[in-house]
Amino acid sequence: MPLDHTAKGVYVIAPTPFLPDGRIDDASTDRMTDFFLQAGCNGMTILGVMGEAPKLDQGEALDISKRIIRRAGKAQIIVGVSAPGFAAMRALARGAMEAGAAGVMIAPPSTLRTDDQIVTYFRQAVEAIGDDIPWVLQDYPLLFTVQMTPGVIRRIVQDLPSCVMLKHEDWPGLEKISALRGFQADGSLRPLSILCGNGGLFLDFEMERGADGAMTGYAFPDMLVDLVKLSAAGERDKAHDLFDAHLPLIRYEQQFGVGLAVRKYVMMRRGIIGSDAQRRPGSALSARARTEVEYLLGRLGRTDPRARLAPAG
């Protein structure tokens, strides 16, 4: 089904599994897809920041999109199509949608500075891919250095009906969620799904501010599923207790430069993927860092049995 503004739950950001020699690991891709969906994720977002998309050529990007879409069945798959030029963006977007994707995600280039530049860019992007494709607006100023105020987001959403979701990754960003929901309450913003990123670092309070769920990666996406469900059910203390238990590992995974290495290492330890390899250029965990991650897993295992893993080989 095509993506729309009613989307809720967890759309996990999927890394791209690689073999140690840099080739895409098809077997791990299938196993990872199965795990995410069996864990209760509503969908997956692929070829995002943590998917190492810039390291894939156009053919690889479309091939892995098709593979995951086929494997996921009825689950909604969102494909990141951000690219330096609109021709590449259009080719991947149209190809992914023809393969059965639910929608695409577009991030702003770091060159945008004024509000008008931002709005014009997304208008041109929609003209390029076609206004029949539902898309997600990625707001990640810490990485892209593009500041989108709630007012600018409202302009984009109101001007471009095919924008059905905001991937909210501002930091701090709780007041932005409240402002957007306030626009909806006063009728100046049409309905919009808001899913949150940043590794889930603020997901506990983002849900309370009106977010519909998470669109992020974490080595325990099954925990994100539980947290979103608890929060939606009004189980505030249980949601925060669960979040607090995982927070040290979430924080450790949020380190710039090595965060993906941490995530892939724990996913490998959990048996979700076969290797924690990244395609070059990429980072790797030092021996000391691995011992720190193992320590965090041991502490987490005291309260969450999912972290009780066999000793590392």
Rank of each mutant, 00 (worst) to 15 (best):
M1G: 13
T6Y: 03
V10W: 05
Y11S: 06
D26R: 14
A27W: 00
A27E: 14
G40I: 02
M44D: 03
D57N: 15
K66G: 08
K66N: 13
Q76R: 15
Q76Y: 02
G80N: 10
V81A: 11
F86P: 13
A87V: 14
M89R: 02
A93M: 02
V104T: 05
M105P: 00
P109A: 09
V126P: 01
V126M: 11
P141H: 09
P141I: 08
V152Y: 03
V152N: 08
V152L: 07
R154E: 09
P161R: 15
S162K: 06
V164L: 01
L166T: 00
K167V: 04
K167P: 08
P172W: 06
G173A: 05
G173R: 01
L174S: 07
E175D: 15
K176W: 07
S178W: 05
L180A: 11
G182R: 06
A185V: 02
D186L: 10
R190W: 09
R190A: 07
L201W: 12
E208F: 12
F220G: 01
L227K: 12
A233Y: 09
A239M: 08
L242R: 14
L242W: 10
A245P: 06
L249D: 01
R251Y: 07
A261G: 06
M267S: 01
G271S: 08
Q278I: 09
R290D: 05
R290T: 13
V293N: 02
G298R: 12
L300W: 06
